[in-house]
Amino acid sequence: MIILFNLFYQFGDALSFLLLAAIGLAVIFGMMKIINLAHGEFITIGAYGTVVSAKILKLPLPIAMAVGVLVTVIFGYILERIIIRHLYGRPLDSVVATWGISLIVSQSFLVIFGPSFEGLQTPLSNFQLGAYSYSQYRLLLILISISILILLYILFLKSNFGTLARATIENPKIASTLGVKVDKVYTVTFCIGSALAGLTGAIYAPTMTIVPSIGQAFIVSAFVTVVTAGASPFIGLIPAASFLSLIQTSVTFYYHATIGVLALLFSVILIIRFLPKGFSGLLIKLKK
């Protein structure tokens, strides 16, 4: 019984990490086709926004987290206005610009806040089961990640805005002739992506070392999860992240962490080879 819970906890923990790493990118890369190499820095901004407002402004943690998200949204909005909007339709050029942004942001954090910032303590407590003890906060993360995804699914696939957004990104010209304010849709979508990345930084901030490179810990996981999720990220994200975290946790369980990481990367290669349209492609196919 304990073993089962243990496995569930480990799997859920890995799953929530992949999901939260990926959600912001799922919007910006998965939907808008901007290869956002600065995704990690969006997460960094969320994390620093949270920690700084909790430490210096002494705000309670949930409010500090909201500030972290807000700061990331403002950053995303300005960035979209100045730079990103010129890159729509040239996804590959976005690599260079977003890499440049990532250099600027992470180095600016180093200059402003120094190489490290005192961390926060993980909220909530821990509980004991047999020989094992668990952090309650990490259990909460699993719930949070899945509920965010459900919300996104509703927002982008069921709501009015979602239909507009998808139509606009699919074919901006037709959308604009139908009276959609294309500009606005892009900006809002980008801001949502930024908010999600900021949220990831905010909720992981209490569990990690606060350094300017904190966001880079997420970037590889984020890209592999979004890509294996496929063309319709909100459908594919849960199966993709589940599959990848199942592989990683079980391999790490039997061998060790390095083999786990290698197995994760290998399974990404194989998934794309056999499911070139990712998990969402597979699901859509099965539905038909």
Binding site: I83, R90, A97, S102, L103, I104, S106, S108, L110
Partner: peptide, 20 residues
Amino acid sequence: AQYAIILMGLILVIVTRYFP
């Protein structure tokens, strides 16, 4: 020194923005 990386980032952003 520490502004080198920021400057490099700026160059890359400006290049893609104005010289696609």
